[in-house]
Design a protein around this nucleic acid. Sequence first.
DNA 1: GCCAACGTTGGC
DNA 2: GCCAACGTTGGC
Length: 139
Amino acid sequence: MKQFWLVKSEPSSYSWNQLLKDGSTAWTGVRNFQARNFLKQMQKGDCVLFYHSVTEKQIVGVARVKKTAFQDPTISESDWVAVELEPIRTLQKPVELSTIKADTALKQILLVRQSRLSVTPLTKAEFDRILGMSGRKNR
DNA sequence: GCCAACGTTGGC
DNA sequence: GCCAACGTTGGC
């Protein structure tokens, strides 16, 4: 079954534009057990919302899991993993954190409740609702 | 720049 | 095994 996720990045360290430019990227550097476990659960083809933290605080694009979890090449200790992500499309209208917080159906998502977690799961309903707010109908 | 939330570390 | 101290992240 297809799953839905949200990943965060500070635009200054890795931005959506960079991902577009790169065509795909290894999502490395996750050093949190909870986030790591989510990474491990990702399946090829899962949809991933891309959130810019700190300076923008908005969801800017939709990506897809291209490759499931593998050993994170940026660390020598084992058992930290990365996945490969590729961009699908840029949101016509970014969905701001304030918009999400103002929405009854979305204000309890993990992004809001646990703002420091860099990889979080979303339900299909939440995913669809965010896409609905992005200025275009689903897909 | 400040602070809250969370994770990690280390002393006991 | 508890908890204080500290570091980091991210929203405001």
